[in-house]
């Protein structure tokens, strides 16, 4: 008789999930997400679309910060490069959108090698500052290279048509974003259980120890930057298509802070955490809107005129609050709830 839940081979050990119910629920969620455009109204569908492409970018940052432990404050740089990679290919030269998405990944990935190079010497705060510097340099470079990028006047982007399918309607664009989000999630989850992911996490936990175990620090740190930049770039392209207009001003430094907030709120290094964090952060303005509508007129007036500032303050408060009171983030809370649910009424 089995006396516990034993793993008998490596395959079982690294399987994505060993629980039938998790697999069933994931499939059900997938079906629900595919069917969502039939049910949701335009506003809600727009929100879910934003969540989906934000998720792609946040998962990209998670590979770098959550798995490999390299801090980047310059991810908005990759985002803007991805958007321009797509916009220049499709918006200016009128090439196939698929090529556009490919360029949206490759251009930031190349930049990732350049930005990643200092990471081989620098750690922690120094790396954060270097990446931040790169984000500003990239912005200026795009503005200066106006013969390629139209400079400060920006590029208009129509919704793409691929393989005879038009992504003009909101529902179709939603499915496109869903496809990329699921792909990004699959990549993130599968990296984690591969040799590459284990190498990343070894570098995060102690890079000198990792090196002495035979992990090539240079190769893996650069790989982390490249993969992260690639995914973030795709998110940038989707963001650009969503906005239908790409300029440098559309990608403020604020997006980096939003991405950081997602990771911190969700729980660093966990794909589920990133999903939960993305949902919370994207819906934050909606949530505060609802909360404030319950209060008096004065608060609503502040919300109407200074909505952006109120939202930013909330980002700050939420980042600090989670770091201070629950560093494991939403995923930690979720695990606690699960444990309580299973063991109730016993403590453990």
């Amino acid at each position: 008789m089995r006396s516990g839940n034993f793993k008998q081979n490596v395959g079982e050990l690294i399987a994505l999930t060993d629980s039938k119910s998790v697999a069933t629920w994931s499939c059900l969620l997938m079906v629900a997400l595919i069917g969502a455009p039939m049910v949701l109204d335009a506003h809600l569908l727009g929100l879910v679309t934003v969540i989906l492409f934000t998720l792609v970018g946040a998962l990209g940052l998670n590979i770098l910060m959550g798995y490999t432990g390299l801090v980047s404050l310059g991810h908005v740089g990759f985002l803007v490069l991805g958007a321009y990679g797509y916009a220049v290919t499709v918006g200016i030269h009128g090439l196939h959108p698929l090529l556009g998405f490919l360029m949206a990944g490759i251009v930031p990935a190349i930049a990732g090698v350049i930005v990643g190079a200092p990471s081989l010497r620098l750690k922690g705060i120094y790396l954060a500052i270097t990446t931040m510097a790169f984000a500003f340099i990239i912005n200026t470079a795009i503005l200066e290279a106006d013969f390629i990028t139209n400079g400060s006047s920006g590029i208009f982007l129509p919704r793409p048509t691929m393989f005879g399918i038009s992504f003009k309607s909101d529902a179709a664009f939603y499915w496109l974003c869903l496809f990329f989000a699921v792909a990004a999630l699959a990549v993130t989850l599968n990296i984690r259980r591969s040799r590459i992911g284990r190498a990343f996490m070894a570098i995060r936990d102690n890079d000198i120890a990792a090196q002495s175990m035979g992990i090539n620090l240079i190769a893996y740190k650069l790989l982390a930057f490249v993969m992260s930049a690639f995914m973030t770039g795709i998110a940038g392209a989707l963001f650009g298509v969503y906005l239908s207009f790409v300029t440098v001003e559309g990608f403020t430094f604020h997006l980096t802070i939003e991405a950081l907030a997602i990771l911190v709120v969700g729980g660093l290094g966990s794909a589920l955490g990133v999903v939960l964090g993305t949902i919370l952060i994207v819906l934050l303005p909606e949530i505060t809107g609802v909360l404030l509508s319950l209060t008096g007129d004065a608060a609503q007036e502040v919300m109407a005129t200074k909505a952006f500032e109120v939202r930013n303050i909330l980002y700050g408060v939420i980042i600090i609050g989670f770091l201070r009171f629950d560093p494991t983030g939403l995923v930690g809370i979720w695990k606690d709830v699960q444990r309580t649910w299973v063991n109730w009424p016993l403590k453990y």
Binding site: V71, G124, I125, A128, I257, L260, V264, V302, K306, F308, E309, V310, N312, I313, Y315, G316, V317, I319, I320, L323, R324, P327
Partner: peptide, 22 residues
């Protein structure tokens, strides 16, 4: 960890910046 405290100061930066505007 130092990184968490640095993130706290980033959060503080966002708050102060928005407070001034508010």
């Amino acid at each position: 960890p130092i990184f968490s405290i640095v993130l706290v100061t980033i959060g503080l930066a966002v708050i102060l910046r928005s407070l001034v505007l508010l």
